[in-house]
Amino acid sequence: MADDRPQDPTTRHPRPEFPQQEQEHPGWTGPMDPPPDHGEESYRGSGLLTDRATLLTGGDSGIGRAVAIAFAREGADVVFTHLPEEEKEARETARLVEEAGRTAVPVACDIREEDRCRELVDRAVAEFGRIDVLVNNAAYQMSQPDGIGAISTEQFDRVVRTNLYGMFWLCRMSLPHMRPGASIINTTSVQAYKPSPHLLDYAMTKGAIVTFTQGLAQMVAGDGIRVNAVAPGPVWTPLIPATLPDTAEFGKQAPLGRPAQPAEMAPAYVFLASQRASFITAEVLNATGGTPLP
């Protein structure tokens, strides 16, 4: 049962130091210590997204799983992507969505490929007949503490194609299937404003997402479609032990002294997708644990 009483945000969830841990990319939820909280036991819906047809990328774990759970408990059906090697994680997300009484359609899809993005949108439209909410959440990063010389062209291409090309294609392909009242929500990052040198290429793409969000929002405002973004700070997801060399003090730099749990990000996406945000577009909702952003 959710506990909605006021709680100290600095101690509500685990604080560093964490056990040092490493995983192969893309990372898995099960081995993480402490285990991430996606809202499995805490998120309670109130009908904010009843019957919304949602397309979500990167829904197998982390923020994506938390968003899928929250959307389902708010009444939405969800088509979500995962990488082929993340099928077990995707099944768990699907189980949680279906447990909420909504439709879950996991799709193995690498959004770096334009044809796969087209097939994904076609699948969502075949399932629901329309797209009410598009959440561009899938992302790739890899720490390179040795500087720009260590960022290979292969890595740079993967980061840009995952974080930018996929988002661009999915927006372009989804818009013809969106009606007035629909919403696009992109995931940017605190890295867009305060880039860590070891995440240079990733931070660059997150800055581009802010610009893209603001420009697209103006382009489609007259069609009655809103476009916003969420900018998380440090969040405890499988991407962290899979891509960063030091997890022991992850999130300690945030003024709240800890990383967010994925469950703490989901309400921002619910709000932006709902009619409660009907006059909000071209905005970035910062959820950084206290790091001031412009």
Rank of each mutant, 00 (worst) to 15 (best):
H177Y: 15
T162W: 10
F156Y: 07
V160N: 08
S174K: 02
I148H: 14
T162S: 14
Y165M: 11
P176W: 04
S174D: 06
Y165T: 01
A150P: 13
F168I: 01
I148R: 13
L170K: 11
P145Y: 00
S174H: 10
S152A: 14
I185E: 10
V159R: 03
N163I: 03
A182F: 09
I184R: 13
G149I: 06
Q144T: 07
I151W: 15
S183C: 08
V160H: 15
M178Q: 15
L175N: 05
G149L: 08
I184S: 06
L170N: 03
F156M: 14
C171I: 04
F168C: 04
R161I: 01
S152L: 01
F168L: 12
G166W: 02
G181R: 13
I184K: 09
T153H: 15
S174F: 04
I148Y: 15
R172D: 08
I185P: 14
G166S: 04
H177W: 10
T153M: 05
D146A: 15
A182Y: 12
P176Y: 01
R158S: 02
T162A: 05
I185G: 04
N163G: 05
I185N: 05
I151Y: 11
G181S: 03
F168V: 10
F156V: 05
D146V: 07
D146R: 15
M178N: 11
S174A: 14
R161Y: 07
G181H: 03
H177P: 12
L175E: 12
S183M: 10
C171M: 07
D146C: 11
M173A: 08
V159D: 00
I151M: 06
M178E: 06
P180L: 03
Y165I: 03
P176M: 05
G147V: 07
D146F: 13
L175G: 06
R179Q: 07
I148F: 15
R161H: 09
R158Q: 10
Q155I: 05
Q144S: 09
T153G: 10
N163K: 11
G147F: 08
T153F: 13
N163D: 02
Q155V: 06
I151T: 06
P176F: 04
G149V: 02
R161F: 01
I185L: 11
R172Q: 05
A182Q: 08
I151N: 11
L164V: 03
P180K: 09
R179W: 09
V160Y: 14
H177F: 11
S152H: 12
P176V: 00
M167R: 11
N163Q: 07
S183I: 00
E154C: 02
F156D: 01
P176A: 00
Y165G: 00
M173D: 06
P180N: 09
D157P: 08
P145R: 09
L164W: 09
S152C: 12
D146M: 10
M173Q: 14
W169T: 00
S152N: 13
F168P: 04
D157L: 07
T162H: 02
R161D: 09
F156K: 05
V159L: 10
N163C: 00
Q144I: 00
I184V: 15
N163L: 00
R158T: 01
F168Q: 14
G181D: 06
M167K: 13
I184H: 11
F168H: 14
T162N: 07
V159G: 04
G166E: 02
P145C: 01
G181A: 05
F168T: 08
D157A: 13
C171F: 08
R158F: 04
S174E: 02
C171G: 00
F168E: 02
Q155L: 15
